[in-house]
């Protein structure tokens, strides 16, 4: 699988691993924002988003309203594609390969096979190699990330706990993925076989990560990011970019907050710059502490 990135054929080819993973490379250092209308998409683009995620309800509303959450209405996705010139992503339910087929036919630029929606298959994720459009998937730890990459994900994001404004789970997931990579780097070659078994991931991929000290795809963070400082902290923890869901359009001043998070993501290691952009943003989203959410309602526990 990973050698598909080095194979070449003289003719032009679409949907190669390099083209899919390369798309995510171009988003690095950027912020991808959840939007539910073309107007919000425009605000996100004007604020400097590198892409928008089109969905029907932001995670905070999915959480508040309950019910089954599905792929967005094609008309809504068309409207958002029409409204902006930056890449448009959209979410499909875990395992729902037909929603993914529909999203590909609508021309979305990236599909998020997302735990934020209600899973459609509790055993299998989508076979993402079958698609021309690239996929991003959530992960809480290294094994989960590697299983998604094995299924064809071209980008990984930490899951965090979406719709909470509580960044603690994203922190845990980022730290866990980075720690497990560091652990692999320090293992002798002959212990990588057992490591692969424990991670429930293919040996070749585990070896590749141990050697490179990083995932073979871009790693973003998501789930609970609500402030410029949250975004900058995730970047300092090793995220290569940031997804912001409810944090922008559930806040008091979306346009300014969006712009501030974009700037803080670029200057994530400069406290003076983060302080400057954090002033006068008004109310952040109110938020829910992850601890107060009963276990069955925690989205990060969907997917495996």
């Amino acid at each position: 699988m990973s050698d598909s990135t080095t194979q070449t054929s003289p003719a032009a080819s679409t949907g190669t691993a390099r083209v899919k993973r390369g798309m995510a490379e171009m988003l690095k250092g950027g912020v991808i924002m959840d939007v539910v209308t073309p107007d919000q998409a425009k605000i996100a683009e004007d604020a400097g988003a590198v892409a928008v995620m089109a969905l029907e309800r932001v995670p905070a509303d999915i959480r508040a309203q309950g019910g089954v959450s599905r792929m967005s209405d094609p008309d809504m996705i068309d409207g958002i594609i029409e409204a902006v010139s930056i890449p448009v992503m959209a979410k499909a339910r875990i395992g729902h390969f037909v929603e993914a087929q529909v999203l590909q036919s609508l021309g979305v630029d990236y599909i998020d096979e997302s735990e934020v929606l209600t899973p459609a298959d509790y055993a299998n994720h989508i076979d993402k190699w079958e698609f021309t459009v690239p996929f991003v998937c959530g992960a809480t730890n290294l094994g989960e990330a590697l299983r998604r990459i094995t299924e064809g994900a071209a980008m990984i994001r930490s899951k965090g706990e979406a719709g909470t404004g509580d960044v603690s789970n994203a922190t845990t997931h980022m730290r866990s993925i980075r720690q497990e990579i560091r652990r692999l780097q320090n293992l002798p070659e002959d212990e990588l076989y057992v490591a692969a078994k424990e991670l429930q991931a293919p040996y070749e991929l585990v070896k590749e990560v141990a050697r490179a000290g990083k995932l073979p795809v871009v790693l973003f963070t998501a789930g609970g990011i609500a402030t410029p400082a949250d975004a900058a902290m995730m970047m300092q923890l090793g995220a290569e970019g940031v997804f912001v869901g409810s944090g922008i359009f559930k806040s008091g001043n979306p346009a300014e907050r969006a712009e501030a998070i974009v700037k803080a993501t670029t200057f994530f290691d400069d406290p003076d710059a983060i302080a400057k952009v954090s002033r006068g943003l008004g109310e952040a989203m109110v938020g829910i502490n992850v601890d107060e959410i009963p276990q069955p309602h925690r989205l990060a526990e969907r997917g495996w």
Partner: peptide, 15 residues
């Protein structure tokens, strides 16, 4: 011309 070749599904590699 920006995004001249189309959307991501049209992205490609060639010699």
């Amino acid at each position: 011309r920006r995004n001249a070749f189309g959307r991501q599904v049209d992205s490609f590699e060639t010699d």
